[in-house]
Amino acid sequence: MNKFIAEFIGTLTLVLFGCGAAVLGGEHVGQLGIALAFGFAIVAMAYGIGPISGCHVNPAVSLAAFVAGRMSVRDMLVYWAAQFLGALAGAAILMILAKTGVESGLGRNGWGPGYLGEYSMQAALIFEVVMTALFVIVILGSTGAGSAPGFAGLGIGITLAVIHIVGIQVTGVSVNPARSFGPAVLAGGEALAQLWLFIVAPAIGAALGGLLFRFNLLKVGD
Score class of each variant (00 low, 15 high):
5 I>S: 01
5 I>T: 14
6 A>S: 12
10 G>L: 12
10 G>A: 15
13 T>N: 10
14 L>N: 05
19 C>D: 05
22 A>W: 01
29 V>W: 06
32 L>T: 15
33 G>M: 09
34 I>F: 08
40 F>C: 14
42 I>F: 10
44 A>Q: 08
52 I>G: 12
53 S>D: 13
56 H>G: 05
67 V>I: 15
68 A>D: 11
68 A>V: 11
70 R>Q: 14
71 M>H: 13
76 M>E: 11
77 L>I: 15
78 V>W: 12
79 Y>R: 09
80 W>K: 06
85 L>M: 14
87 A>G: 15
90 G>M: 08
93 I>N: 07
96 I>K: 09
98 A>Y: 04
104 S>H: 04
107 G>R: 09
111 W>R: 00
113 P>M: 05
121 M>H: 05
121 M>F: 15
121 M>V: 12
122 Q>N: 03
123 A>R: 04
128 E>C: 06
131 M>D: 00
135 F>I: 06
143 T>S: 04
145 A>F: 05
151 F>D: 02
157 G>S: 08
159 T>E: 06
163 I>M: 08
168 I>C: 00
172 G>F: 05
177 P>A: 08
181 F>L: 10
189 G>Y: 08
191 A>I: 07
192 L>V: 02
195 L>C: 01
198 F>G: 11
201 A>R: 03
202 P>S: 01
202 P>G: 03
